[in-house]
Computed example of a mutant assay.
Amino acid sequence: MDPKTSTTSDASPMYPRPVSATSKAWYYFIVYTRRVLLKLALPILKRFPGMLYPGVKPTFTKSYPCHPNLTHRFFYPKSYNASDPALPLYIDIHGGGFVFFAAQVDDKFCSNLANNNNILVVSLEYSLAPSSPFPVALHEAADVITSILDDDSLPFDRSKIAVGGFSAGASLALTVSQLPNIKKILRGVVAFYPVIDWTRNVQDQLASKPKGCGPDSLEARMPLFEYCYIPAGQDMKDPLVSPGFATRDALPSKVCLIGCEHDLLCRDAEVMAQRLAKVETEDGASAWEHDGIKWAKIVGQVHAFDFLPFPTGEVKKIRQERAKQMYDDVVDWLFREVYI
């Protein structure tokens, strides 16, 4: 098969790749060691300006009875007044390979989205693998979204609802939006550099990248994420695992897919966008819209470039400009196609 393509035509199941006992032990060591280090580093990082956005906080946090162990973050526009009309709702799902991080990492994005665009933003928490593999996070997200919709204390317009996410969170946004009880209430879904197709070999994904764009941080991590998130015996062609196998009718009417040119996941997302829209474009096309589908390729950027720490000089300037343009384009699309 051409390494620049992925397919949904073969219906035969594909299961997670075998992992040796040594690799399993190494994966667990990496996951839990990194979690401990992140927990220890958090109080220190908060002391430095620009790290973890210490001045950015949600309006409030809240848990729901369906999953009382999960605390979600709610961002009202600072200008909001109780007498104002109901707000559009954007539900955000954080990334981290289904294994790392928490809703807090998206605070700056959520705060800016709410304050700059008069949107109510809710940042969802979910349980992490490997202790909570698929489909735990998927069902938690569905339960919490249902609870949000039933929450009469929240001032949002029930006809203007979108869900979105980053990386693993983008994959969850694309999968939870396929569940019938969630799909029927959503107007659109936004997926920033999502995990689209778990059946793809990492080496084939690397081969789909432009030549000379350098190493990819996901190359070593994707096997770890696969082992932690996808249980043995799970068909990886299930569209609730690999949303690239979802049919057009299974998704909301409006879908926005965004990839980063130097990301091994980019081509999979582009192929999905082309398939959903039933269009063929040149590989170099960086942006287009057709029949409710929006595709955007962030040229010259790597996976999660808008969250990478410690940028300096010209690199920092370019990243900030590209991130702002990416977010502005998504907001423009939301108000043209979803919040209408």
Rank of each mutant, 00 (worst) to 15 (best):
E270G: 11
P243A: 07
T7G: 09
Q203E: 08
A273V: 11
P3S: 00
Q320S: 15
L52G: 05
K78W: 13
K4T: 01
M14Q: 15
A207M: 00
E280V: 14
A41P: 09
P135N: 11
R248A: 06
L124H: 00
S111M: 09
P85V: 05
F156I: 07
L334F: 08
F134S: 07
D328Q: 07
P16F: 04
L89V: 02
V315P: 03
Y27N: 06
V330I: 09
C266Q: 10
P180R: 09
R158G: 12
F75I: 08
A114C: 10
A220V: 10
K294M: 11
L120F: 03
G214A: 08
A21E: 15
K324V: 05
V19K: 04
W288Q: 11
G55V: 00
L172V: 04
F48H: 14
H290W: 14
K160E: 05
Y339V: 00
H290K: 15
I298H: 07
K39C: 04
D151I: 12
Y80W: 15
S177N: 08
F109W: 01
A142E: 05
V279P: 06
A296N: 11
T33E: 10
L179N: 05
E289K: 13
H262W: 02
L265Y: 05
A142G: 04
I258S: 05
T22H: 10
F75R: 00
I318R: 15
M236P: 06
V56G: 03
P135G: 08
Q104S: 03
P231F: 06
